[in-house]
Computed example of a mutant assay.
Amino acid sequence: MLSQNDTGLIIVDIQGKLAEIVHQSESVIANATVLAKGANCLGLPIVWLEQNPSRLGATTASLSDALGDYQPIPKMTFDGCGADAFNEAIEKAGVK
């Protein structure tokens, strides 16, 4: 069972033109935006990743706006765990 004390949200690579052309992209972006708004309302930590943003573009604007004061963690590896900043953010958040 999820508990507010040990639950957070991770947003991964919903960015650039690619986010707009994946299957059912409007639903994916809308659902991720709802999740981000809900996490913010509940005070849950959010960790937000962007894959090579200088080449692939920034997170979709509507989602980025919903993420509030959180800042994206850029990564150059496909696996988020390859980015030290990601691992540090998860540890700092204290969630499972």
Rank of each mutant, 00 (worst) to 15 (best):
A66N: 07
L9P: 02
K75P: 00
R55I: 11
L9Y: 01
L44A: 06
T77A: 09
V22W: 00
T33D: 12
Q4H: 15
L49Y: 06
T7N: 05
I29C: 06
V28E: 06
E20F: 01
G94F: 09
L35Y: 02
C81F: 15
E88I: 13
A39H: 10
S25W: 06
D84N: 14
I73C: 08
A89I: 01
Q24H: 12
S54K: 13
Q51N: 03
K17R: 01
Q24E: 11
Y70D: 14
A93M: 05
K92F: 12
V28P: 00
A66P: 05
Y70H: 15
I90V: 01
I29H: 09
P74I: 13
D65G: 05
T7K: 07
V12H: 04
A19V: 06
L42A: 13
G57A: 02
D79H: 11
T77E: 07
Q4G: 08
D13I: 03
N52E: 13
L63S: 08
F86D: 03
C41G: 15
N31M: 10
Q51K: 03
K92I: 09
D69W: 07
P72G: 13
N5S: 15
S3E: 12
V28N: 00
P72E: 10
A39L: 13
N52Y: 15
D65C: 10
P72Y: 13
P45S: 08
K75N: 05
N52W: 15
K96C: 04
I10S: 00
V12L: 14
M76H: 12
G43K: 05
N31W: 11
I46S: 08
V22T: 03
L42Y: 15
